[in-house]
Design a protein around this nucleic acid. Structure first.
Length: 270
DNA sequence: ACCCAGGGTAACT
DNA sequence: AGTTACCATGGG
Protein backbone atom coordinates (compact mmCIF):
# COMPACT_ATOMS: atom_id res chain seq x y z
CA UNK A 1 0.00 0.00 0.00
CA UNK A 2 0.92 3.66 -0.27
CA UNK A 3 0.87 5.70 2.90
CA UNK A 4 0.62 9.49 2.77
CA UNK A 5 1.72 11.85 5.53
CA UNK A 6 0.88 15.54 5.72
CA UNK A 7 3.38 17.64 7.64
CA UNK A 8 4.65 21.15 6.94
CA UNK A 9 7.95 20.37 8.64
CA UNK A 10 8.89 17.36 6.53
CA UNK A 11 11.08 17.99 3.50
CA UNK A 12 12.40 14.61 2.33
CA UNK A 13 15.11 16.14 0.15
CA UNK A 14 16.58 18.30 2.90
CA UNK A 15 16.18 15.52 5.45
CA UNK A 16 17.99 12.95 3.31
CA UNK A 17 20.66 15.30 1.96
CA UNK A 18 21.64 17.17 5.12
CA UNK A 19 24.46 14.78 5.91
CA UNK A 20 22.89 12.61 8.59
CA UNK A 21 22.42 9.49 6.43
CA UNK A 22 24.18 7.90 3.47
CA UNK A 23 21.86 5.29 2.03
CA UNK A 24 19.09 7.26 0.30
CA UNK A 25 19.44 8.05 -3.38
CA UNK A 26 17.40 10.45 -5.48
CA UNK A 27 16.20 9.64 -8.99
CA UNK A 28 15.59 12.12 -11.83
CA UNK A 29 12.01 12.71 -10.65
CA UNK A 30 12.96 13.54 -7.08
CA UNK A 31 11.89 10.21 -5.60
CA UNK A 32 14.16 8.79 -2.92
CA UNK A 33 14.85 5.10 -2.49
CA UNK A 34 16.70 3.46 0.35
CA UNK A 35 16.85 0.68 2.90
CA UNK A 36 16.60 1.08 6.66
CA UNK A 37 15.98 -1.52 9.31
CA UNK A 38 16.15 -4.19 6.61
CA UNK A 39 13.16 -2.60 4.87
CA UNK A 40 13.24 -1.19 1.36
CA UNK A 41 11.29 1.98 0.61
CA UNK A 42 10.63 4.62 -2.04
CA UNK A 43 9.50 8.06 -0.84
CA UNK A 44 8.02 10.92 -2.87
CA UNK A 45 6.80 14.37 -1.94
CA UNK A 46 4.37 16.88 -3.39
CA UNK A 47 3.97 20.05 -1.35
CA UNK A 48 3.32 19.09 2.26
CA UNK A 49 2.35 15.54 1.31
CA UNK A 50 4.94 12.79 1.68
CA UNK A 51 4.08 9.36 0.32
CA UNK A 52 5.70 6.09 1.36
CA UNK A 53 5.34 3.69 -1.56
CA UNK A 54 4.69 -0.03 -1.26
CA UNK A 55 4.80 -0.25 2.52
CA UNK A 56 3.08 -3.02 4.44
CA UNK A 57 0.64 -2.07 7.18
CA UNK A 58 2.86 -3.57 9.86
CA UNK A 59 5.90 -1.52 8.81
CA UNK A 60 4.18 1.87 9.11
CA UNK A 61 5.07 2.31 12.80
CA UNK A 62 8.70 1.59 11.95
CA UNK A 63 8.78 4.38 9.35
CA UNK A 64 6.85 6.81 11.55
CA UNK A 65 9.52 6.31 14.19
CA UNK A 66 12.36 6.45 11.64
CA UNK A 67 11.17 9.82 10.35
CA UNK A 68 10.50 11.06 13.91
CA UNK A 69 6.92 11.89 13.01
CA UNK A 70 5.84 12.00 16.65
CA UNK A 71 7.83 15.20 17.17
CA UNK A 72 6.60 18.74 16.48
CA UNK A 73 9.50 20.49 14.75
CA UNK A 74 7.67 23.82 14.51
CA UNK A 75 8.11 24.14 18.28
CA UNK A 76 11.89 23.73 17.89
CA UNK A 77 11.93 26.33 15.14
CA UNK A 78 9.98 28.78 17.24
CA UNK A 79 12.40 28.35 20.13
CA UNK A 80 15.54 28.60 17.98
CA UNK A 81 14.27 31.62 16.07
CA UNK A 82 15.07 33.77 19.09
CA UNK A 83 18.54 33.90 17.55
CA UNK A 84 18.85 35.75 14.23
CA UNK A 85 21.29 33.37 12.53
CA UNK A 86 19.31 30.33 13.61
CA UNK A 87 16.13 32.01 12.42
CA UNK A 88 17.65 32.28 8.94
CA UNK A 89 18.86 28.67 9.07
CA UNK A 90 15.39 27.45 10.05
CA UNK A 91 13.81 29.51 7.28
CA UNK A 92 16.21 27.97 4.78
CA UNK A 93 15.28 24.38 5.69
CA UNK A 94 12.15 24.25 7.87
CA UNK A 95 11.58 20.64 6.81
CA UNK A 96 14.73 18.99 8.16
CA UNK A 97 14.04 16.18 10.61
CA UNK A 98 16.51 14.22 12.72
CA UNK A 99 16.08 10.59 11.68
CA UNK A 100 16.06 7.79 14.24
CA UNK A 101 18.58 5.50 12.60
CA UNK A 102 19.94 2.16 13.73
CA UNK A 103 22.86 2.48 16.16
CA UNK A 104 25.20 -0.02 14.51
CA UNK A 105 24.68 1.37 11.01
CA UNK A 106 25.16 4.92 12.27
CA UNK A 107 28.29 4.01 14.22
CA UNK A 108 29.99 2.31 11.28
CA UNK A 109 28.86 4.99 8.83
CA UNK A 110 30.33 7.85 10.84
CA UNK A 111 33.54 5.94 11.51
CA UNK A 112 33.84 5.75 7.72
CA UNK A 113 32.98 9.46 7.42
CA UNK A 114 36.08 10.72 9.18
CA UNK A 115 38.45 12.77 7.03
CA UNK A 116 36.37 11.72 4.03
CA UNK A 117 33.84 13.17 1.58
CA UNK A 118 30.18 12.28 1.22
CA UNK A 119 30.28 10.60 -2.23
CA UNK A 120 33.11 8.32 -1.18
CA UNK A 121 31.50 7.61 2.20
CA UNK A 122 28.35 6.45 0.38
CA UNK A 123 30.48 4.31 -1.94
CA UNK A 124 32.29 2.53 0.89
CA UNK A 125 29.02 1.94 2.77
CA UNK A 126 27.37 0.62 -0.40
CA UNK A 127 30.18 -1.87 -0.96
CA UNK A 128 29.99 -2.92 2.71
CA UNK A 129 26.28 -3.69 2.30
CA UNK A 130 26.75 -5.56 -0.99
CA UNK A 131 29.55 -7.63 0.49
CA UNK A 132 28.02 -8.55 3.84
CA UNK A 133 24.37 -7.47 3.98
CA UNK A 134 21.16 -9.41 3.46
CA UNK A 135 19.36 -8.83 0.13
CA UNK A 136 16.32 -6.59 0.56
CA UNK A 137 14.07 -5.14 -2.11
CA UNK A 138 16.60 -5.24 -4.94
CA UNK A 139 19.39 -3.87 -2.74
CA UNK A 140 21.16 -4.94 0.40
CA UNK A 141 20.47 -4.19 4.03
CA UNK A 142 23.21 -2.76 6.20
CA UNK A 143 25.00 -5.77 7.72
CA UNK A 144 24.46 -6.48 11.40
CA UNK A 145 27.33 -6.68 13.87
CA UNK A 146 26.70 -10.40 14.03
CA UNK A 147 27.03 -10.75 10.25
CA UNK A 148 30.40 -8.99 10.49
CA UNK A 149 31.68 -10.91 13.50
CA UNK A 150 35.24 -12.12 13.19
CA UNK A 151 36.23 -9.87 10.30
CA UNK A 152 39.79 -8.59 10.01
CA UNK A 153 40.93 -5.51 8.05
CA UNK A 154 42.01 -7.63 5.05
CA UNK A 155 38.41 -8.83 4.66
CA UNK A 156 37.41 -5.21 4.08
CA UNK A 157 40.02 -4.52 1.39
CA UNK A 158 37.40 -4.48 -1.42
CA UNK A 159 35.65 -1.58 0.35
CA UNK A 160 38.70 0.66 -0.12
CA UNK A 161 38.03 2.21 3.26
CA UNK A 162 41.71 2.91 3.85
CA UNK A 163 42.95 3.32 7.41
CA UNK A 164 39.36 3.13 8.64
CA UNK A 165 39.13 -0.64 8.05
CA UNK A 166 40.71 -1.50 11.38
CA UNK A 167 38.40 0.97 13.13
CA UNK A 168 35.39 -0.87 11.68
CA UNK A 169 36.80 -4.18 12.92
CA UNK A 170 37.32 -2.81 16.43
CA UNK A 171 33.76 -1.47 16.51
CA UNK A 172 32.35 -4.83 15.39
CA UNK A 173 34.37 -6.64 18.04
CA UNK A 174 33.32 -4.32 20.87
CA UNK A 175 29.63 -4.40 19.89
CA UNK A 176 29.59 -8.19 19.66
CA UNK A 177 31.43 -8.66 22.95
CA UNK A 178 29.13 -6.25 24.77
CA UNK A 179 32.01 -3.91 25.64
CA UNK A 180 29.90 -1.34 23.82
CA UNK A 181 26.27 -1.84 24.83
CA UNK A 182 23.68 0.09 22.81
CA UNK A 183 20.90 -0.49 25.35
CA UNK A 184 23.09 1.01 28.05
CA UNK A 185 24.19 3.93 25.86
CA UNK A 186 20.54 4.68 25.21
CA UNK A 187 19.94 5.02 28.97
CA UNK A 188 23.11 6.96 29.81
CA UNK A 189 23.37 10.75 29.84
CA UNK A 190 25.32 12.36 27.01
CA UNK A 191 28.80 12.58 28.54
CA UNK A 192 28.86 8.99 29.79
CA UNK A 193 27.39 7.61 26.58
CA UNK A 194 30.05 9.49 24.62
CA UNK A 195 32.86 8.03 26.74
CA UNK A 196 31.63 4.49 26.13
CA UNK A 197 31.56 5.02 22.35
CA UNK A 198 35.04 6.56 22.47
CA UNK A 199 36.50 3.30 23.78
CA UNK A 200 36.29 2.17 20.14
CA UNK A 201 39.51 2.89 18.24
CA UNK A 202 38.80 5.58 15.67
CA UNK A 203 35.83 7.07 17.52
CA UNK A 204 36.42 10.55 18.91
CA UNK A 205 34.10 13.32 20.08
CA UNK A 206 32.71 14.14 16.64
CA UNK A 207 31.88 10.61 15.50
CA UNK A 208 30.46 9.76 18.94
CA UNK A 209 28.21 12.83 18.92
CA UNK A 210 26.92 12.00 15.43
CA UNK A 211 25.92 8.54 16.62
CA UNK A 212 24.31 9.93 19.77
CA UNK A 213 22.31 12.46 17.76
CA UNK A 214 21.39 10.54 14.61
CA UNK A 215 20.78 7.11 16.18
CA UNK A 216 20.04 7.65 19.88
CA UNK A 217 18.29 10.97 19.33
CA UNK A 218 20.18 12.63 22.18
CA UNK A 219 19.31 16.19 21.21
CA UNK A 220 21.96 17.76 23.43
CA UNK A 221 24.70 16.16 21.32
CA UNK A 222 26.46 18.76 19.18
CA UNK A 223 28.80 17.22 16.59
CA UNK A 224 31.56 19.67 15.66
CA UNK A 225 32.91 19.03 12.18
CA UNK A 226 34.95 21.47 10.11
CA UNK A 227 31.83 23.29 8.91
CA UNK A 228 30.38 23.71 12.40
CA UNK A 229 33.74 24.92 13.70
CA UNK A 230 33.78 27.45 10.88
CA UNK A 231 30.27 28.72 11.58
CA UNK A 232 30.89 28.82 15.32
CA UNK A 233 33.90 31.08 14.76
CA UNK A 234 31.85 33.25 12.43
CA UNK A 235 28.56 33.57 14.30
CA UNK A 236 29.07 32.35 17.86
CA UNK A 237 32.64 33.05 19.00
CA UNK A 238 31.40 33.23 22.60
CA UNK A 239 29.44 29.96 22.40
CA UNK A 240 25.95 28.89 21.40
CA UNK A 241 23.01 31.18 22.23
CA UNK A 242 20.80 30.33 25.18
CA UNK A 243 17.83 29.30 23.02
CA UNK A 244 19.73 26.17 21.92
CA UNK A 245 19.99 24.80 25.47
CA UNK A 246 18.97 21.15 25.46
CA UNK A 247 18.36 21.03 21.71
CA UNK A 248 21.89 21.83 20.52
CA UNK A 249 21.73 18.92 18.08
CA UNK A 250 18.62 20.26 16.37
CA UNK A 251 20.27 23.67 16.06
CA UNK A 252 23.41 22.01 14.71
CA UNK A 253 21.55 20.31 11.89
CA UNK A 254 19.72 23.44 10.72
CA UNK A 255 22.98 25.39 10.85
CA UNK A 256 25.00 22.69 9.11
CA UNK A 257 22.59 22.50 6.18
CA UNK A 258 22.38 26.29 6.02
CA UNK A 259 26.13 26.80 5.70
CA UNK A 260 26.76 23.69 3.58
CA UNK A 261 23.90 24.04 1.13
CA UNK A 262 22.44 27.48 1.62
CA UNK A 263 25.52 29.65 1.42
CA UNK A 264 25.00 30.95 4.94
CA UNK A 265 28.71 31.31 5.53
CA UNK A 266 30.67 34.07 3.80
CA UNK A 267 33.38 32.86 1.43
CA UNK A 268 36.78 32.96 3.05
CA UNK A 269 40.22 31.96 1.90
CA UNK A 270 41.66 30.67 5.16
C1' DA B 1 51.61 17.32 -8.52
C1' DC B 2 48.63 19.43 -5.04
C1' DC B 3 44.50 20.05 -2.43
C1' DC B 4 40.69 18.62 0.35
C1' DA B 5 37.19 15.55 2.41
C1' DG B 6 30.93 15.76 8.38
C1' DG B 7 38.53 13.29 12.27
C1' DG B 8 41.37 10.46 15.34
C1' DT B 9 45.72 9.06 17.21
C1' DA B 10 50.27 9.37 18.77
C1' DA B 11 53.95 12.14 19.79
C1' DC B 12 55.39 15.96 20.87
C1' DT B 13 55.73 20.91 23.64
C1' DA C 1 45.78 21.50 27.45
C1' DG C 2 47.15 22.81 22.90
C1' DT C 3 49.64 21.84 18.35
C1' DT C 4 51.18 18.74 14.39
C1' DA C 5 52.35 14.90 11.16
C1' DC C 6 50.28 11.10 9.61
C1' DC C 7 46.85 8.11 8.41
C1' DA C 8 44.57 5.48 2.66
C1' DT C 9 41.70 6.72 -0.95
C1' DG C 10 39.45 9.24 -4.63
C1' DG C 11 37.92 13.35 -6.98
C1' DG C 12 38.72 18.09 -8.29
Amino acid sequence: MNYTIQNKNFDIRRTFLCGQCFRWSEDENGAFSGIAGGRSLTVTQSGDEVTLHGVSEQDIPFWENYFDLGTDYSAYIETLSADETLKKACEFSPGIRILRQEPFETLISFIISQNNNIPRISGIIGRLCESFGTPAGGGYAFPTAQQLSGIVPEDLAPLRAGFRARYICDAVEKVNSGAVDFAEIDRLPLAEAREQLKTIVGVGDKVADCVLLFAFHKLDAFPKDVWVKRLMAQFYPGGLPECTLGIEGIAQQYLFDYVRNGGGLPVTND
